[in-house]
Write a protein that binds this DNA or RNA. Sequence first.
DNA 1: ACCATATGAGACATTGATGTCTCACACGGG
DNA 2: CCCGTGTGAGACATCAATGTCTCATATGGT
Lengths: 192, 192
Amino acid sequence: MSHMVYACLMAVDPDHVLRSAAALLTRKSTATMDEVAKAAGISRATLHRLFAGRDALVRALESLGIAECEAALDAARLDEGTASEAVRRLVRAIEPAAGLLAFLYTENQLFEGEEQNPGWTRIDDRISALFRRGQLSGEFRIDLTPAWLTEALYGLLASGAWMVHSGKGAPKDFQHMIVELLLGGALRREES
Amino acid sequence: MSHMVYACLMAVDPDHVLRSAAALLTRKSTATMDEVAKAAGISRATLHRLFAGRDALVRALESLGIAECEAALDAARLDEGTASEAVRRLVRAIEPAAGLLAFLYTENQLFEGEEQNPGWTRIDDRISALFRRGQLSGEFRIDLTPAWLTEALYGLLASGAWMVHSGKGAPKDFQHMIVELLLGGALRREES
DNA sequence: ACCATATGAGACATTGATGTCTCACACGGG
DNA sequence: CCCGTGTGAGACATCAATGTCTCATATGGT
């Protein structure tokens, strides 16, 4: 049957290309398509066959980031245990994606005016719901809105990723730094 | 005396141009020189006479950001009162510059590899010293390093500026949101 | 009134990234 | 063994932003 699709095994792995691009753009957000291709070990032509342009590549990275984020949200089981424990699990689960998230966070302001991917809203809502749950259970203070706590978490994740990336902090401290500051703050707790 | 410098009063105000550029680039970090010029109410030619190129403009904005930051540090009198009060004053004083800071923060990774302005180190040191003072006085916990607290403050300032800019938060809540989270954390304090 | 100076408008070349194309080649299945 | 398919390499046009230039004009001091 001449019309059959011959699944030639020479095909490059789009996911691997995407991961390479994410790793590169996380460090150098202005990297060229050429640099992205080289980083992935493929030619610019092939890269362009996979993603119809830089825009499409960024969109694909956005989808990847959203998917990883939602996977982390699932893995963290935000509904189980105390809200504090859930936040702790969330930060731990989201750590591998923090660099990509930070990149997309800055890149997103390029899309200002355009419609934004509804995935971000879903993620915002789930995290906000977690903080709201903590407030309703009496764990979290109520003078800070869930929206702000969510935004603050993003900022701290970016700062944490930056600390690790710049070598000023160890990856093993990532979760502790973020969670302790987000939940406990800088003030020394009274000895209870 | 024909060699005298005739101070023609037609000269545009470089500082006003810089402020306009800061205001624009804070919202749209990819604005072109043409847009920057229009935003400042001058022609592209004049803009180019004031700043020899986009690079020079960004450098000038960096200097402006550093100057505003250091002015805020001075105004906050970090050595007076408790460290908490000093942090509160600092966030309040630095609020007008937060947008510019966020822009420079993302733009700085473009300069990676090159030498960075020593002003940032000075600022980092002064803020770190404040947190260290709080730790030595027993106000702040000691398991979070001053470097991390400083970086976290930057992240929260960026998040706060984003909240205000996107309309999701009121400017009047800026200081409260940041300071309360940075110092107190999300956890509800025990009734003392 | 005159003139020096700064500005605005626009033309122009340059640069860098991008998108598109062709062609040679290597691989793998038939 | 042969051929189809995907890939790499590179040429090429395009486009946007930039940097540089000239010239007319307005302004303000003398």
